[in-house]
Design a protein around this nucleic acid. Sequence first.
DNA 1: CTTATAAGTGTTTTTTTTACATTTATAAAA
DNA 2: TTTTATAAATGTAAAAAAAACACTTATAAG
Lengths: 244, 244
Amino acid sequence: MFEENLEAPENLNMHLNYYQKEDQVLLAVDCIIFGFDKENLKILLIKRNFEPEKGKWSLIGGFLKKNENLDEAAVRVLETLTGLNDIYLEQIHTYSKIDRDPGQRTISVAYFALIDVDSHHFDGIQIDAAHWFDIKEAPNLIFDHNEMVQKAKARLKRRALSKPIGFELLPEKFTMRQLQNLYESILDKKLDKRNFINKINSLDVLIKLDEKDMSVSRKGAYLYVFDKDKYEKKVEEDGFIFKI
Amino acid sequence: MFEENLEAPENLNMHLNYYQKEDQVLLAVDCIIFGFDKENLKILLIKRNFEPEKGKWSLIGGFLKKNENLDEAAVRVLETLTGLNDIYLEQIHTYSKIDRDPGQRTISVAYFALIDVDSHHFDGIQIDAAHWFDIKEAPNLIFDHNEMVQKAKARLKRRALSKPIGFELLPEKFTMRQLQNLYESILDKKLDKRNFINKINSLDVLIKLDEKDMSVSRKGAYLYVFDKDKYEKKVEEDGFIFKI
DNA sequence: CTTATAAGTGTTTTTTTTACATTTATAAAA
DNA sequence: TTTTATAAATGTAAAAAAAACACTTATAAG
């Protein structure tokens, strides 16, 4: 970048040094953690145990450290909280309103993360006050966190339609119904069962197993796994575009 | 956000104060400025006149100041350079690789901007070394600026297909051919003239004037204006989605 | 053996997208 | 004034994608 003060390009280095100290800021990351429990889309929130806004719900987050980049900071924050480290993470947006945090000037970079709630029976959400909320029933959040969640939901929707990202939220083996539930949760609308299955099958990235999930219906439902290799081969060879 | 060090939640305030000073960083904005001259998509770059990387091409940018948010910083940087202040701006991504700027640790928030090159005969690109490059012929850039431009191009493409953003790049009155040229530049592919016009007309957001542009052909081409009110009314009433 | 429940399965209609060729208005040249 | 050259303007048919739609089946529980 051309990281320079355009108003005073002369005497550059002196200016820069002065400038640096004056205008340094605290950079945070906040994570919008989406989960899915085979039925509904969830979001992981924690109850603040300190001021300001003590007792209110918020996203989890932390500060960027000197020896890491933002992606690494987001991974660290997530791992510290959930014990997990192979989670889908994507940067969303950077929030910088001057008084967004009344305590101090902080700029925050929002990330969204995807977790299968059930298969990651993580030994402890390590912060007691953490809780999974149904996305429809999430409480009001502090600061600009509601805005962050809104943007994350929009991004998730867009991603789910253009990348097989939904599979990050499912267990390894899943039924068509579960997949459809997931898409219905993400897109927030009902889908036609037959059209959905036809569409998914036409993408040709699932493997149907001989195994059935008998836990929901009398008849049982076949289990599927996502064929990541096939997907990636298609992307490589055909310029395959995942589009639901 | 929950801007806290998760590893040491006890003794919070003391910790925070220590932490703050230690981990403050410099935040910059860098602008990818796209322009259109009725023929081709352009990008505005400047030649650095200081070290490091003196003499090389880069995006324009500047540091975030204490009294502004990032959007404001981007507006300021752009206005300082071009004298313009009603420009379409959109945040793209935040770049934070530790040694992305070899001179110092700097995190940069990239923005993209859209300008009609001809109608904004701005009195001076105020930095002499600034230059419009055809998007296809842009030089190699410093640091991670090439990466930023790549992402901005992808975003522009996506936006152009889903919002009438292209009009920011055109003069108030334009011909169908110019509009098509713009879309062909952004999408980087040839479009069928009849299909393009049919599609545009079906959106019903342009007003055809009685005036012709005689500068290109013998026959002359009708001029159009974008009907912003109509567009916004449609969005409001019908949930109209702009989709080319 | 009856019943209740979710799983599984194809076809038709509608909408959207793509492919494609001729005529027209005008300025410039002859 | 006539001819010529050039880009503008215009519509339809075919193909592809999306949406609408209802009945049969497998099984556990009663």
